[in-house]
């Protein structure tokens, strides 16, 4: 949208795929995708890991609280303990992404600095 970068997939493309490959109506495709995401979301909120064979595992980890320093004022800031979502790709996905036929490394490194922050 804002810049012409590499393919950026959103819900719309996945919905299109569900209509084409699974033969769902638009409404059903939208609902199905939402249900999949909501189900994973709820499982994580309940503290239950989601293991998707061949794809990866979503889990929740505890982060300890710590004291930080405000970069501008130098005042101490408290970072509260919280839980965070971790995704660990399965071996299959790791190998898929790292194979030579995947997008070349050079192009990606050139993009990676600007890509670090969401648009």
């Amino acid at each position: 949208m804002s810049r012409p970068d590499r393919m950026r997939m959103t819900r719309a493309e996945i919905v299109a795929r569900l209509r084409r490959d699974v033969g769902l109506s638009r409404t059903d495709a939208v609902d199905c995708l939402e249900t999949v995401l909501t189900t994973i979301h709820r499982s994580l909120v309940a503290g239950d890991d989601v293991r998707l064979t061949g794809f990866g595992q979503f889990s929740v980890r505890q982060r300890a609280g710590r004291m930080g320093v405000h970069p501008a004022t130098g005042k101490p800031v408290e970072h509260k303990a919280r839980r965070v979502v971790i995704f660990k790709p399965a071996r299959g996905l790791k190998e898929l992404v790292d194979q030579p036929s995947a997008a070349p490394v050079e192009e990606l490194s050139a993009n990676s600095q600007q890509d670090s922050e969401q648009p």
Partner: peptide
């Protein structure tokens, strides 16, 4: 991801 893209 294979094509070097991102999914949001």
């Amino acid at each position: 991801l294979l094509e070097g893209g991102r999914v949001e």
